[in-house]
Every structure is written in structure tokens, then in C-alpha cells.
Design a protein around this nucleic acid. Structure first.
Lengths: 149, 149
DNA sequence: TATAAAACCTAGTATTTCAGTCGGAATTAG
DNA sequence: CTAATTCCGACTGAAATACTAGGTTTTATA
């Protein structure tokens, strides 16, 4: 019942970009340094996000990445689905129907996994990057320290 | 964001045993046949459940497995944790603290994963095998068919 | 008492996924 | 021109997954 690091690292990067929204493009190198991630690996993850239209790359010197939308319009769910695929505790209870399991509709076990799926989606889809940035401010107010992630 | 087949198959087996609670011990071979699972593989999963005290093996001819507790006292959460380990979308947000991530308490991303973890646990811990058997009856009433799982 | 059914145990294995590394080509600000 | 940066594709070691295989005990029953 684990997320891979893809979703986790990718969310870190998107969160970092959200904190820098409205500033200059942010180069991956600086994200990798701040978030303590492998530059090359992060590159692959961001490529997925780019192909899915969540970020835009600015090439050349002083380039980097920027969000294509306002942080308030990007949910964590979008990010995770991009990097990890549809939310599905097991294959035949995927958000995207892939196989044809005859029993799914009337099988109590499948109904249970569907509940799990929906409760995960509920959390992820109801949180935006803007929410996270906002809450970060609150945490900083309490602790008086700057966050690393 | 996937469960392995261990949890899924193991739950199927436990559900099968719950439907046969108060009857004779159920041999794995018959469970494997009904649920369409590999006998040898299932054996390994059931061994984990046995070592965790959820089932008891009865050796010899006419032997099999029985639940050690009433189905109403066995939650799906217990079964899944036995087979898949603690519920933890990522390592530093495990139900069981394994590493020492300094930032966890005041990091917004970790707080999010903790919410995901808790929403999963809520679903799994609030469902017992007896609930599932009961609901199966309802489904059968509606469809008029016997369930395979 | 012999037999067959079953739990119990250990080892091996093919495949896939994960989490990267590496090296280079294209683009562009200064 | 140069350095910074995105972009691209191939490769890789390690781990996990989902089994298979083949044995040894144990025990109800004929």
C-alpha cells in the first residue's frame, strides 16, 4: 500500500514551483538541491508533468520550469495521477476501467476496494497547491522556521 | 498506489473462511478452487495469517483452516496489515515509525500523506468480515445468484 | 495398519518495477 | 561565444512480486 517515490518527489517539485509562482522560471537544479533529490531522476518526473500540461519548460540560460496554471487550479490528485497512473488499490477497481472483471459490480470485496479508492481520491482532489502554500505559511508562523520539504 | 495481490488474495481467503465459520475446517485446496488462486501461493499467504494468530491450521485428512475469532471481531485492517505491513503511503508517514525524518511534524506534504493514510485506515478498520458476509447476503437477495469472489 | 488428505516448510526463479545513472543534443540569455 | 539549461534515449543494479517445486510431517478414515 505504498506510493512510489515518483509521486512523492514530483509533488515536492510542484510544490516548490508553486512557492515560486509569479517569479522567474525555476531551474531543476535548484529544486533538486532544495528538496534533496537527484537532478537527473527529477528531470524524468518533470518530463511526465510537462507532457501532461502541468508545467512548461523554458530552455536556455536563465531557463527553468513554470506552472502552466495558478496553484489554486492544480490539485494534488492531478499530479499524483500523472505520475502514478489512475488511483486503484487493485486493477479491477481502477478509476479507469482496464479489464473486464465480471463480478466487480456485485462483489463485496470489490466494493470495499472502491471505497478505499474513493477515500484516497477525496483527500487528493480536495487539496490544491495553493492550499499547501497557504498552510506552509501558517506552519512558519507557528515554528518561526523556514520549511524544507 | 497499489495493493499487492497478497492483501487481495489473503482477504479473499479470510472472507471465504468467514462464510464457512462454524462449519468444518476448510482445506486450502477448496478455497483456491473457489477463489481461482494458486494453491501453493495461497499457502504462503495463509502461513502469514496463521503466524499472526488470525487462523488456525488443522492438520491431517479432513483438516484445513479455521478462523481463530468470530468474523465480527476481525477487521479488514488487521488482515491487510498482516499481509502488507503497516499502512504507509510513504515510509516516513508509516503507522509504525521506522525512520527519523526530522521535518515530518511540520511539513505540509507529510501532513497530506498522513491524511491519506488515515482515510485508508478508516475504511479498512471500520469493516469486519462479518460486515462483508452480511452484505453478501444482501447482494444475493438482490441478484438471486451465488457470489464468486 | 495402510492410505490418502491435508498442513507445514524451504528453496528457487522469471518477470517486472524502481530509482536512479550516464551521455549527449538542442536552445537561448548575456 | 559561452555557459546554463531543457530535452532525449539508453542503460543498470537492486529489490519486490507472484509464483513453482518438492519435500516432511500429521491425522482421519477404510
Amino acid at each position: 500500500m505504498k506510493l512510489s517515490t515518483r509521486g512523492h518527489y514530483g509533488l515536492k517539485a510542484m510544490y516548490d514551483l508553486a512557492l515560486n509562482y509569479n517569479n522567474n522560471p525555476v531551474p531543476l537544479k535548484s529544486i533538486a538541491r532544495r528538496q534533496n533529490l537527484s537532478n537527473n531522476y527529477l528531470e524524468q518526473l518533470v518530463a511526465m508533468l510537462r507532457k501532461n500540461g502541468l508545467v512548461r519548460g523554458v530552455r536556455g540560460a536563465q531557463g527553468g520550469y513554470v506552472l502552466t496554471k495558478d496553484p489554486a487550479d492544480i490539485t494534488v490528485g492531478e499530479i499524483i495521477r500523472t505520475l502514478e497512473g489512475p488511483i486503484a488499490p487493485i486493477n479491477c477497481v481502477s478509476e479507469v476501467r482496464t479489464n473486464t472483471c465480471q463480478q466487480c459490480n456485485y462483489c463485496i470485496i470489490h466494493i470495499l476496494w472502491a471505497q478505499v479508492r474513493d477515500s484516497i481520491a477525496e483527500v487528493l482532489d480536495s487539496t490544491t497547491l495553493a492550499d499547501m502554500c497557504h498552510d506552509t505559511g501558517k506552519i512558519q508562523d507557528i515554528t518561526g522556521t523556514i520549511q524544507e520539504v
